[in-house]
Design a protein around this nucleic acid. Structure first.
Lengths: 185, 185
DNA sequence: CCGCAAACAGAATGATAATTCTGCTAACGT
DNA sequence: ACGTTAGCAGAATTATCATTCTGTTTGCGG
């Protein structure tokens, strides 16, 4: 078959990446072999290497996948007429945590300590998310608490920092609390 | 040589464990081979296996080593005449963070998502540290803010939770911020 | 419809690295 | 001091995997 249409190709890529995430969630980044991923995705090794240059490349895609997923929901909060208070925002973020993704997320933290590519992905994603939280807190300060915008932005910084810290700690606790699902081996 | 005296034996164990921590800090838990550790410790593979049953055993020892080291300092704060305020306590905890240990600490978080033994170590250590922070905050509430003890203990719980979260987040940021030292390979 | 190259399966390859094995050496109890 | 035997070095063994290779199949442009 000649090159797949772009849509199809992207579909395959996410099919593989999602299978990889499931494997990582169960067995961790390093304990997951390409064979595991072929089994989980229903594809073959050859096929996977047609879509990803190597395992590191695939790990990066999986990391981006899980870390990005969290971003979507927050941005709309900041734009809402009645933005949530920091406490409320934190509750919603925590409620949205999925245990499997928490595990992979924490695994990427671990990996980021030695792999520069992963490190950049984690740092970028964290920064972007913090900025969104900052926007949301600022909006709350302005619209609900009636601070004036310049002051609100400054005042929001430490609050955003705290919300992020509490959220990330909760991510860690979720990963610690929920046992990895038994390997279907 | 007949069995080493207990003190010597323990010395060797920590010699190996500390070399392992240095390797882990540089290359991560999984990328570190036994050969790396022999090079770093100056001992041989056979020797390492005389002291640790296998690599997993050694990883656990290294994890305990780094995670425990943090505990020592806090307990004395709680017993002090003028216990530090939560803000002050957090500052001191953060100031005491060592980048190399932060990296290994975050790596153990990642590992804990799939290895039950590491998971227990991390959970235990975290609980113990939280309890110490709780004691310290309670002491501050009682001695400095003049709450009465029963109320103080209850009031301290969410504060201790926040201090822990902010500390752990800082640990993560430190690990992200400081590049792993170049491998001397 | 057709043909071609890309997508795919699955086996082969090669590297890496954990663990074990074979002796040799030296630290402790006496 | 000395013999014993655990500690140790370093090679050998083996298992595990990432990656590549060899055909085969099939989706898409013409």
């Amino acid at each position: 078959m000649p090159r797949l249409t772009d849509a199809r190709k992207e579909l395959r890529r996410t099919q593989i990446a999602e299978a990889a995430v499931r494997c990582f969630s169960r067995n961790g980044l390093k304990r997951t072999s390409i064979a595991d991923i072929t089994a989980e995705s229903g594809l073959s090794a050859g096929s996977i290497y047609a879509h990803y240059r190597n395992k590191a490349d695939l790990v990066q895609a999986a990391a981006r996948e899980t870390l990005d997923k969290r971003d979507g929901t927050i941005s709309e909060y900041a734009a809402a007429d009645a933005p949530p208070s920091p406490d409320e925002l934190l509750s919603r973020l925590i409620a949205a945590i999925d245990p499997a993704e928490a595990r992979v997320g924490v695994q990427t933290w671990g990996e980021s300590t030695t792999d520069p590519a992963i490190r950049d992905i984690v740092a970028d994603t964290t920064d972007r998310m913090r900025a969104m939280v900052h926007d949301c807190v600022t909006a709350w300060l302005v619209k609900v608490e009636h601070h004036d915008p310049p002051h609100a932005r400054e005042f929001a910084t430490p609050i955003a920092h705290q919300v992020m810290a509490l959220y990330q700690a909760e991510l860690l606790y979720t990963a610690l609390r929920t046992p990895a699902e038994e390997t279907p081996s």
